[in-house]
């Protein structure tokens, strides 16, 4: 590798490129969180880009929510493109100012998206755990990850419901991409 190539590589914000590529593919990696009630009585696969809810074999959909998730998907892909462009522009001899704008805008957005997603889940579960006022039995769901069996006895009936929640590998990729995205901003400042 000659000195010119080394100079080019030295101008590339490598964490930014990695974060950008991970952010670009993130909308296609599937659900971030999986909830199962029963074996498959109720199944929820959730991510910021798609929420699939199946209740007793019937899919529950909302066109508005699907279109909104498509907007988020396109937005996150746009962030990935900005990260890659902002990381590569200095190496191409293009405006470093524009590169800085790209990295500054895109580097933290995924982190906030992950945070808002986790906070939304925690609020949803907290509300479900407060459902004693509308259900005849108390529900104590685990937060984000875990399994629990909810049992209730009513007048002539008893019901046992296994509940399982887990975070998926796609969520792990999102967290790693968010962290590398923030690191790319620090790298850009030091370049």
């Amino acid at each position: 590798m000659n000195r010119a190539d080394q100079n080019v590589l030295g101008s590339v914000n490598i964490p930014g490129v990695i974060a950008g590529m991970m952010t670009l593919i993130l909308p296609f990696l599937g659900a971030w969180w999986h909830l199962t009630i029963g074996v498959d009585a109720i199944v929820v696969n959730a991510s910021p880009f798609e929420v699939r809810t199946i209740i007793l074999g019937n899919g529950v959909t909302s066109p508005l929510f699907e279109w909104f998730c498509l907007g988020l998907k396109l937005g996150v892909m746009y962030l990935g493109v900005l990260l890659i462009a902002g990381s590569a522009l200095p190496a191409m001899g293009q405006s470093e100012g524009i590169a800085r704008i790209f990295i500054r805008f895109a580097s933290k957005k995924l982190f906030w998206l992950v945070l808002i997603f986790v906070a939304s889940l925690i609020i949803f579960i907290a509300l479900a755990n407060q459902s004693a006022t509308i259900l005849p039995f108390q529900v104590h769901l685990p937060y984000l990850v875990g399994t629990k069996t909810v049992s209730a006895n009513m007048e002539n009936m008893s019901i046992t419901v296994p509940i399982s929640m887990k975070l998926t590998s796609a969520f792990g990729v999102a967290v790693v991409a968010a962290i590398i995205g923030i690191y790319s901003r620090i790298t850009q400042k030091n370049m």
């Binding site: 066109p63 498509l70 907007g71 396109l74 937005g75 746009y78 704008i101 790209f102």
Partner: peptide
């Protein structure tokens, strides 16, 4: 050029979201 880029970069994702809601 940087000024134009500076104010247009944040607008694009907002436009994408609004467009998708309108499309819905």
């Amino acid at each position: 050029g940087e000024k134009i880029v500076g104010w247009s970069v944040p607008i694009i994702p907002t436009l994408l979201l609004v467009s998708c809601v309108a499309a819905a």
